[in-house]
Amino acid sequence: MITHPQTASVPLPDPDEERRRVQTARLLAYRDDGPLVAAVRDRIGPGLPPVPATLVALVAVVVIGLTGVLDPGTGWVMLLPALVMAVLVIPTAPRDHLGRFDWLVPPLIRGTEFAVVMLLGLAADTPKWLLFALIYVVGYHTYDTVYRTRQSIWPAPWVFQAGLGWEVRLLLLGAGAALGLLTWVAGALTLYLGVLFAFESVTSWLRLDKESALAQAGDDLEASPEDAMEQATGDAEKQ
């Protein structure tokens, strides 16, 4: 008697679990965490609640700016905003970001990052156009990440590490301000990030267009001669 091999049934993924996984991955991508967060994420336990911690970080940075602590423009006090944000926000990284209001975390992080850049730059008398350029470059990276993930096109993981993440960027700017070199550090960081993000974004979209074109060509080759003739006739009539 001939028996047919039984194919093992592959269990379908749970839709709710898949939705939660994608939501977590998307919000973590929007956070734009860098190498420092990646190095300590698995070593800090369950972490802090994301929304309260990021809100406290934003309020603390605003208070630092309003109290004039950064008025000297140099000295290690210039590291204070970056350190406050790092201490409060890095421990939120291990969370799954599935809370009702956890979608607020990425904009809170980005807004606090931009606030720190402006406070340091104004205190250190850095050219405003340079501060705008740095914020624009990081903002473009954020927009590109959001747009791509909404199209189910995920940026390569190495981009977030090479982009240094919000935490390393702020610590570098704080150290540069402390040493009286913020203009040079901000300029170098803007140039580096601008080239990195622009190159990766352009090459990724070009590669996607090429893959789409090849897939379309493959579909055309698989079409029957009758379909190909009908399509060509239709194109000719349109002209």
Rank of each mutant, 00 (worst) to 15 (best):
42 D>T: 09
43 R>V: 04
48 L>A: 14
51 V>A: 05
52 P>I: 02
54 T>K: 04
56 V>Y: 10
58 L>W: 13
58 L>C: 14
60 A>E: 08
63 V>A: 14
64 I>R: 05
64 I>W: 01
66 L>I: 07
68 G>R: 12
69 V>F: 11
69 V>D: 14
71 D>V: 08
71 D>K: 13
75 G>F: 06
77 V>M: 14
77 V>N: 09
80 L>W: 05
80 L>T: 15
82 A>W: 00
83 L>E: 03
86 A>Y: 03
87 V>F: 12
87 V>Y: 00
88 L>I: 13
88 L>M: 07
88 L>T: 03
89 V>D: 07
90 I>P: 11
93 A>W: 13
94 P>W: 14
94 P>G: 08
97 H>G: 10
98 L>S: 03
102 D>F: 11
103 W>C: 00
104 L>A: 14
104 L>E: 12
105 V>E: 06
106 P>F: 10
107 P>K: 07
107 P>N: 00
108 L>R: 00
108 L>I: 07
108 L>C: 03
109 I>S: 10
109 I>E: 06
111 G>W: 09
113 E>V: 13
114 F>A: 05
114 F>Q: 04
115 A>E: 01
116 V>I: 15
117 V>Y: 00
117 V>K: 01
118 M>F: 09
118 M>S: 04
123 A>W: 00
124 A>H: 01
127 P>I: 05
128 K>N: 03
131 L>I: 09
133 A>M: 02
136 Y>V: 10
139 G>S: 12
140 Y>P: 06
141 H>K: 09
144 D>P: 00
144 D>T: 09
146 V>G: 09
149 T>L: 11
150 R>F: 13
150 R>H: 15
153 I>T: 13
154 W>S: 02
154 W>P: 03
156 A>G: 01
158 W>D: 11
